[in-house]
Computed example of a mutant assay.
Amino acid sequence: MISSLNVASLVFGLIAWIVPVLNIARIEKLDYTRWMFSFMISFGSCAISLLIQIYYYYFLIKDGDITALIDTNGVVALAATILFMGTLLINIIFAIILTLYNRRTMR
């Protein structure tokens, strides 16, 4: 059960990073609703991934596995920080590229 939480968190984290990258690759086909949906999917996946990690800690505490909690604490905190900052950075880059593309095509 607990190991499947880590896999699910990883999958949602990858979704949070892959969605904006794919949209940068197909920027010509995006309209307002699609890129706004992309932002929501990306940040929503990041939030779900972090929420899963909170539940991972909850189950470790509930099972009394304090040793595993202590062993994984630093890595999970680092991974959560990298996930959030990476998602934010990729989406900012996506927004800048989208803005520049829209300005270029409007002229």
Rank of each mutant, 00 (worst) to 15 (best):
N91F: 03
A68D: 11
A68Q: 13
Y55W: 07
L88Y: 14
Y56V: 01
V76F: 00
N102G: 00
S42Y: 06
F84D: 01
R103V: 04
I61N: 05
I96N: 06
A80S: 15
A8C: 06
K62F: 02
N73Q: 14
S45G: 08
A80T: 04
G13H: 09
I18C: 05
L51F: 13
G86Y: 07
K62H: 03
V7P: 00
N23K: 11
G44N: 07
R107F: 08
Y57T: 02
I18M: 11
V76W: 00
I92N: 01
Y101L: 01
S45I: 03
F39Y: 14
R34H: 09
M40H: 06
M40G: 03
A77Y: 04
A16G: 05
K62L: 10
L22V: 12
L50I: 12
R103N: 11
D65E: 13
L69K: 04
N91W: 03
L14E: 06
I27L: 13
G64C: 05
M36W: 12
S38A: 15
A16F: 04
M36R: 15
R103T: 02
N6T: 08
S38N: 13
W35G: 00
A95W: 07
L5W: 05
N6Q: 11
D71L: 12
T105K: 15
L83H: 06
I18D: 00
V7C: 03
M36T: 14
N73H: 14
Y32V: 15
T99H: 10
F43V: 11
V75T: 14
A79Q: 10
T67I: 14
V11I: 15
D65P: 01
F43N: 04
A25C: 10
I92A: 14
S4G: 00
V21S: 08
K62N: 03
F12S: 03
I48G: 03
V75H: 02
L89V: 13
I82E: 07
S38D: 12
R107E: 11
R107S: 08
I24G: 01
L14F: 15
L98E: 02
S9N: 07
A95F: 12
F12R: 01
T72F: 01
A80F: 00
L89G: 02
V11K: 11
V75N: 08
W35K: 08
N6D: 09
I41D: 04
V76M: 07
L14W: 09
I97V: 14
P20D: 02
L98A: 01
D63E: 14
L78T: 14
A77W: 05
L14A: 12
A77D: 05
L5S: 07
A77H: 06
I66R: 04
R26V: 10
G13Y: 10
S49N: 09
G86F: 08
V19W: 03
V7L: 15
Y101N: 11
A8D: 12
T33P: 00
V19A: 11
A79T: 12
Y32L: 14
D71R: 13
